[in-house]
């Protein structure tokens, strides 16, 4: 009797109704099949040759350099911004927060156009930069960093801000009554407690910066060794030499999996949080 009931539960109890199960299967196929295809169709035999190709290595170098720089820049600017959004009771902060999330939903190409109009050689601020310092951002490696930061910093800001808002402001009060200045409170209490969210936000930010294509190519172009990042190189390789494109795509998938692994391992393992 009991085994019958168990068997029935095992076969019927946990099965999903077809109305939900079939769309779910389609979704899984849609999300995973392309990735499987990359792995299956990758030119495994020629992989070594392709990945040691000079231009590919250059693109990889530019990608890693700019994505990491954009992440560091996002941390330096974005963590203070997150603090202001979470802690400063200014009017209009809600509106500001909404505006700051705009880059998240904006088509990246549009972001590139906007950057050109602001920081291009004849842009609002760009003209001033060129005039005063003889320095223009477009088509330079720093230009790539700016484009990637524009697109990826909101990920970090929103992650950290959410953590700060739900964190215990009481601990900051306690620190103040113990004689800690506001900067000391931030450095010794707020930041350490927000560290897991800063880490998680940084990883998201880095991954987004690494994959950036639209804003970068619009604002910084595709100069090999200077502004040509991996995604841009892959795009052009697919037109000239698809084998190279697929091999590099495989590399990007591997990087993405690595990032996910990092997130899973270290994300919510907060030090000493109750």
């Amino acid at each position: 009797m009991a085994t019958d009931a168990a068997r029935q539960r095992r076969t019927g109890g946990h099965g999903a109704p077809a109305v939900l199960g079939i769309p779910a299967l389609v979704a899984v196929a849609l999300l995973l099949l392309p990735l499987v295809a990359v792995v299956v169709r990758a030119p495994w035999r020629g992989l070594g040759r392709i990945l040691s190709d000079q231009q590919a290595l250059e693109a990889l170098r530019v990608s890693l350099l700019t994505a990491t720089s954009a992440t560091v820049l996002s941390i330096l600017l974005g963590v203070p911004l997150a603090w202001v959004l979470a802690r400063v009771p200014l009017r209009g902060v809600a509106v500001l927060r909404a505006l700051l999330t705009l880059p998240l939903v904006l088509p990246p190409v549009v972001a590139g156009v906007a950057l050109l109009l602001a920081l291009g050689r004849s842009g609002i601020l760009g003209r001033l930069l060129l005039h005063s310092f003889g320095f223009g951002l477009p088509f330079t490696t720093p230009g790539v960093v700016v484009a990637e930061t524009f697109v990826s910093m909101p990920f970090l800001v929103l992650t950290v801000e959410g953590a700060l808002r739900s964190s215990d402001a009481g601990l900051e009060e306690a620190a103040a009554t113990l004689g800690a200045s506001r900067l000391t409170v931030f450095r010794r209490v707020t930041l350490p407690l927000a560290a897991p969210s800063v880490l998680a936000g940084s990883v998201l930010c880095w991954a987004r910066a690494l994959g950036e294509f639209g804003a970068t190519i619009t604002f910084a172009g595709s100069v090999p060794g200077v502004t040509q990042t991996m995604p841009i190189y892959v795009y052009f390789a697919m037109q000239n030499d698809p084998e190279v494109g697929v091999a590099l795509s495989l590399l990007m998938v591997a990087l993405a999996v690595l990032v996910l692994g990092l997130l899973r391992d270290r994300w919510l393992r907060a030090p000493g949080r109750r």
């Binding site: 009481g170 306690a174 620190a175 209490v189 407690l193």
Partner: peptide, 8 residues
């Protein structure tokens, strides 16, 4: 009342 010791 809730002590507010720094957990980290």
């Amino acid at each position: 009342q809730d002590y507010r010791l720094f957990p980290h």
